[in-house]
């Protein structure tokens, strides 16, 4: 982890705003879940927002992303509207997937989001395919697979990295290492300290980066994306991060080590960027507070709008099974 070059003001403001949107939306999602307005399960990325915005900011139009069920942040960072996201989670017809996907299947082809995936590791080969089509067609777009460290223990991780490496495909494998695979700490399931070490098995670069610093994430992703775009093949990028909440809705994470959460809260991704901006005279506390309040209004408005939206018609159950 080297010194991170500062991004320009526009970029910083964009990343800060998007991180606040993700944070506030997810806090509300938890509440909507408790009210039974969102069903099933949800997996929050609170604490990991710098990963989402750093990745999204480094991508270009046409690039594609597959991610996991902990993907609300990626969807918002890539540009899914708050309305589409909330409506989808409520199962409404105006949701991103017409209510057929829900929290774990957010998809928006118009912004390159090929889909969250509810099966651990399943998005990696799909990203390989998106990169394959770019290579076959001679297009400069890249594909990104985002996954947790738990996914690096499943077979698709190996198959996808191996295939991408031999074909030098324009794909980034980005591991958000939040230290826990479901309820299990990484050291109980994984025999390496850094996921990036696994890159050596595929003869591709393995990079470790601070996942709490949006600018550092941007920088690392940009560098790997450039390599991929120039035909130099895939990179395995590990972002060290932490989820403040449990694995899913009912998990209070009693398995955490004492004091661990407090340590990570000191490096909260929103604070990290806001502090830098304040230090550089680009933001003051009042502006930050206004920004938070404005974002809350955006989220609350989207929730009220989505509540009033209709559910999909029953006939739609049989639509879109086949083209």
């Amino acid at each position: 982890m080297t010194t991170v070059p500062a991004l320009n003001l526009d970029s910083r403001q964009w990343m800060l705003r998007r991180m606040l949107e993700i944070r506030i939306a997810e806090e509300q999602i938890q509440g909507l879940f408790m009210q039974n307005l969102i069903r099933g399960t949800t997996h929050l990325c609170i604490g990991q927002e710098a990963c989402s915005v750093g990745i999204a900011h480094a991508l270009q139009p046409g690039d594609t992303v597959t991610c996991t069920y902990r993907g609300h942040g990626h969807a918002l960072a890539l540009g899914m509207t708050m309305q589409k996201l909330i409506a989808e989670m409520m199962g409404k017809a105006s949701g991103a997937c017409k209510g057929k996907g829900g929290s774990m299947h957010l998809t928006d082809a118009s912004i390159g989001l090929l889909g969250e995936n509810a099966i651990v590791g399943a998005g990696l080969p799909i990203a390989v395919g998106a990169a394959l089509s770019a290579q076959v067609k001679g297009e400069s777009r890249i594909a990104v697979a985002i996954f947790g460290e738990g996914a690096t223990n499943i077979g698709t991780f190996h198959e996808a990295l191996n295939m991408a490496a031999i074909w030098k495909l324009p794909v980034l494998f980005i591991c958000e290492n939040n230290l826990y695979g479901e309820y299990s700490p990484m050291e109980n399931t994984t025999p390496v300290a850094h996921i990036a070490e696994r890159a050596t098995a595929y003869n591709i670069p393995g990079v470790v980066e601070d996942g709490q610093d949006a600018e550092a994430v941007y920088d690392a992703v940009k560098e790997a994306a450039d390599r991929a775009r120039y035909g130099e093949g895939p990179t395995l990028l590990e972002l060290k991060t932490y989820r403040y909440r449990g694995h899913s809705r009912t998990d209070t994470a009693p398995y955490r080590r004492p004091g661990e959460l407090d340590e990570w809260l000191k490096r909260d991704p929103i604070d990290v960027l806001a502090r830098k901006m304040i230090a550089d005279g680009q933001l003051d506390e009042t502006e930050l507070e206004e920004l938070k309040q404005g974002t809350e209004r955006l989220v609350f408005d989207a929730i009220e709008w989505a509540k009033a939206e209709p559910f999909p018609p029953i006939e739609s159950l049989f639509e879109d099974i086949y083209a």
Binding site: A122, P125, V128, G129, L132, E159, N162
Partner: peptide, 16 residues
Amino acid sequence: EQAIVGAALGAAITGL
């Protein structure tokens, strides 16, 4: 085989 099918899917939804 997982990568073969997954890559085919990824290619199919991105223009091939």
